[in-house]
């Protein structure tokens, strides 16, 4: 039995795949691997990489906070932020990282500090995953994602 995966962020529906084989989810207390017939679970999301596998193809997303609803045949990810890893622009990520670092050094009001820290963590995670993809074996992406996103 395949798993129906839906990833929705605050801004948009990021991804949908009706026949995935496996999902690896960055839950708050550690990475959680989900195979078909998983027990119904609601988990709080941490920060990290979410991977959807279908055959030899895979798709990767960077998730920041939210919740996931796991049912035996369905996974619904409600992420505060979800970036498609393969679509990340390295230059933009670097710019965002440097800008956030600069802001943090200069000092900001407390609520903006929190936002700048999140931007920094997000940019750093993006850059790490890009370099990981660069050094890894060629990856086959899940077809149809371009239409869904």
């Amino acid at each position: 039995m395949p798993i129906h995966v839906e990833i929705v962020s605050r801004e948009e529906k990021v991804f949908e795949e009706k026949e995935a084989d496996m999902v690896s989810i960055p839950a708050e207390d550690g990475q959680m691997g989900v195979l078909p017939h998983h027990a119904p679970t609601v988990a709080s999301l941490g920060e990290g990489e979410l991977i959807v596998k279908k055959g030899i193809a895979r798709e990767s997303f960077l998730i920041f906070g939210g919740v996931v609803d796991v049912r035996p045949d369905k996974v619904v990810v409600l992420a505060e932020i979800a970036d498609t890893t393969f679509d990340i622009d390295q230059e933009k990520a670097q710019e965002a990282r440097d800008h956030a670092r600069q802001l943090l050094e200069e000092g900001l009001p407390p609520d903006e500090m929190e936002e700048a820290r999140l931007t920094l963590r997000r940019a750093e995670l993006q850059l790490r995953s890009i370099s990981k993809i660069r050094t890894s074996e060629p990856i086959m992406r899940i077809l149809g994602n371009g239409d869904e996103a």
Partner: peptide, 21 residues
Amino acid sequence: TTTSHQDYEFEPDTASIIEQI
């Protein structure tokens, strides 16, 4: 969508998930 009684598990725990969402 589901009316059947299912035993949900909550990670890390029920109270904090409910309190969060």
